[in-house]
């Protein structure tokens, strides 16, 4: 397949944190690429490095104790890891925006939401006070907040969680970024509100062509939103494939476990309920990963080799890559 340089390309990203218990390898050899208008889903349990990947792309990892050890993050060919802090501030909020998991605390309580949205427009697009406020109203309308002219003067505490997440989206998209990173944008919200937020993101993406990196631990949300899915475990990518492919034919035992964990209402009508599945064990300590596959201690298929050496990612056909010794034979295909 012959392609031009992707919009965003991450290669060999390695992030470490100095902790009291030694160096934690938070991200090891992470790579991803993103095309305009595409949605990439990143899934995994808490602590697997999803959010850290997002923060590394923005270079918002707290340094120290964090350290970006190796790799590159290229936006339209420009390596952000080598860029100056000044250049990065131009990129943040303008080319790459981010929304967070906690809409209740991600907005500044002492400024009106209008001021907070307008701030981005004034900073990056050089708008005056009045024009920036008009932009804020326009953005609030775009995220379907009723009575936008009035609500632009309200403060975060006067709004519900779902409304605040809409405000966060309005703020993130105010300067029409080419990449939006959504870090668990609906985790803190009610199920009905979750669906509304996803619909809104899709609608805005259709209209603006923004590429989205959607981080979630919810396989259902990913299935609905993402074009491609990247599964992370203990700071590594274990599997990556188009969404359909990964849902129909998950290869890595961890991915299989994740998909099995999603309850299916239609398959188990009451009163006969199937027991919910779970993956036994917990994510290992990142300070002491050992030599083998980090999933081996929880894996039903693990053998001696899995405990000795970490499997490299290999192509199994159909844009599907998986890092597991089970598919060693498929390497040639």
């Amino acid at each position: 397949m012959d392609r031009a340089a992707p919009l965003l390309e991450v290669e060999g990203l390695k992030v470490e944190f100095d902790t009291r218990h030694g160096v934690a390898r938070v991200l090891t050899d992470i790579g991803l690429s993103l095309e305009p208008g595409e949605t990439l889903g990143i899934v995994g349990e808490s602590g697997c490095g999803k959010s850290m990947t997002a923060l590394s792309i923005m270079r918002l990892v707290p340094i120290p104790p964090g350290r970006i050890g190796a790799g590159s993050v290229r936006l339209k060919g420009e390596d952000l890891l080598q860029a100056s802090e000044k250049r990065l501030r131009e990129v943040r909020g303008k080319d790459i925006s981010m929304i967070f998991q906690e809409p209740m605390t991600s907005l500044n309580p002492v400024y009106s939401i209008g001021d907070q949205i307008a701030e981005t427009a004034r900073l990056h697009d050089g708008l005056g006070r009045r024009d920036a406020l008009d932009r804020a109203v326009e953005m609030l309308k775009a995220v379907h907040i009723p009575a936008a002219e009035r609500r632009v003067r309200e403060f975060p505490h006067q709004m519900s969680g779902g409304m605040r997440q809409r405000v966060m989206i309005a703020m993130a998209l105010a300067c029409r970024p080419s990449v939006l990173i959504a870090d668990e944008p609906t985790t803190a919200l009610d199920v009905t509100v979750q669906a509304q937020v996803f619909d809104l993101l899709k609608e805005l993406q259709d209209r603006t062509g923004t590429a989205i990196i959607l981080i979630s631990h919810d396989m259902g949300a990913i299935a609905e939103m993402a074009d491609r899915v990247m599964v992370m475990y203990a700071g590594r990518t274990v599997e990556e494939a188009p969404t359909e492919e990964i849902l129909d034919d998950p290869r890595h035992p961890y991915t299989k476990g994740l998909i099995a964990c999603v309850p299916h209402l239609e398959e188990a009508p009451p009163p006969v309920r199937a027991a919910l599945t779970e993956i036994p064990g917990v994510v290992p300590a990142l300070t002491d990963p050992g030599a083998g596959c980090s999933f081996a201690p929880r894996c039903a298929h693990a053998d001696d080799r899995c405990r000795r050496a970490a499997p490299p990612p290999r192509d199994v056909g159909g844009n599907h890559r998986v890092a597991c010794w089970l598919y060693e034979g498929a390497d040639a295909a």
Partner: peptide, 21 residues
């Protein structure tokens, strides 16, 4: 706080983050 992270993600410099937010 989370909103400080938001301010940084917006592209604000450290002076604005500290003195304003």
């Amino acid at each position: 706080s989370d909103f400080i992270r938001t301010a940084r993600a917006k592209g604000l410099g450290e002076t604005s983050v500290t003195c304003k937010h």
